[in-house]
Simulated assay, not measured.
Amino acid sequence: MPGPSRRGLLMRPLPSGSRKNRGISLGLLALCLAAARCLQSQGVSLYIPQPTINATVEEDILLSVEYSCHGIPTIEWKYTSNWGAQKIVEWQPGTQANISQSHKDRLCTFDNGSIQLFSVSVRDSGYYVITVTERLGRSQFGTIVLHVSEILYEDLHFVAVFLAFLAAVAALLISLMWVCNKCAYKFQRRRHKLKESTTEEMELQGVEC
């Protein structure tokens, strides 16, 4: 008896169990792709427009950042330098910030994640690391390098020379004013004496008449 043809074997439909397993596999694959796409769309992104900042003492410095994420994140700034590392501030946008004692009176926070340092000193030089964390635990961090230098001696010398020049000009003006007042006083006194002598002469002429 002749066996089934090759064409008949190829056209035979798959068993129902195999089709069901294949459908489940495709469904799981689609679910995994959708979950991965969802997680990717909900990730944290962080942008730092100026990663390196040069400043001089007593300046007010803005450490500017921008972030995007879903929900309200937790923002944390840490400071690292030759003197050690510490957390300087942590907050959630719209709530009061928890500022460390070392920066209590000279730090200001913004809802976009930026912070401002007031009246910086050389000890403020170092690395400032920001970490933005979502409620689900995903986070992103970035670093800003701050260099704070003292005012150069040449600048101080220029300021000193300029102040000395202003002092000399002021002294000259004061001297000129004193001379002018002295001359005006002498002129008025001389005029007054001349007027008195003229009056006396007129009185004498009246007596003689």
Rank of each mutant, 00 (worst) to 15 (best):
T133N: 02
E134H: 05
E134A: 07
R135K: 14
L136A: 02
L136Q: 03
S139C: 05
F141E: 14
F141H: 12
F141N: 15
G142M: 01
I144E: 00
I144P: 00
I144S: 00
V145T: 12
V145P: 01
V145S: 13
V145Y: 15
V145H: 14
V145L: 12
L146E: 01
H147I: 01
V148E: 03
S149F: 04
S149P: 01
I151Y: 09
L152V: 10
E154N: 09
E154W: 10
E154M: 05
E154D: 13
D155C: 05
D155H: 09
D155E: 14
L156N: 07
L156D: 04
L156E: 14
L156G: 02
L156H: 10
H157D: 15
F158K: 14
F158V: 13
F158Y: 14
V159E: 15
A160Q: 15
A160S: 13
V161D: 09
V161M: 07
L163H: 14
L163N: 15
F165W: 12
F165N: 04
L166K: 12
L166M: 05
A167D: 08
A167M: 06
A167N: 09
A168W: 02
V169Q: 12
V169W: 08
A170I: 02
A170T: 03
A170M: 05
A170S: 07
A171C: 10
A171M: 11
L172S: 14
L172Y: 15
L173M: 05
L173I: 12
L173N: 02
I174V: 07
I174F: 11
I174T: 06
L176W: 10
M177D: 07
M177H: 09
M177T: 06
W178V: 08
W178Q: 07
W178G: 03
V179W: 12
C180Q: 06
C180V: 04
N181V: 03
N181I: 03
N181Q: 07
K182V: 06
C183L: 11
C183Q: 04
C183K: 05
C183N: 06
C183G: 01
C183A: 09
A184G: 03
A184K: 10
A184V: 08
Y185D: 07
Y185I: 04
Y185T: 09
K186M: 05
K186R: 09
K186H: 11
K186T: 10
F187Q: 11
F187Y: 11
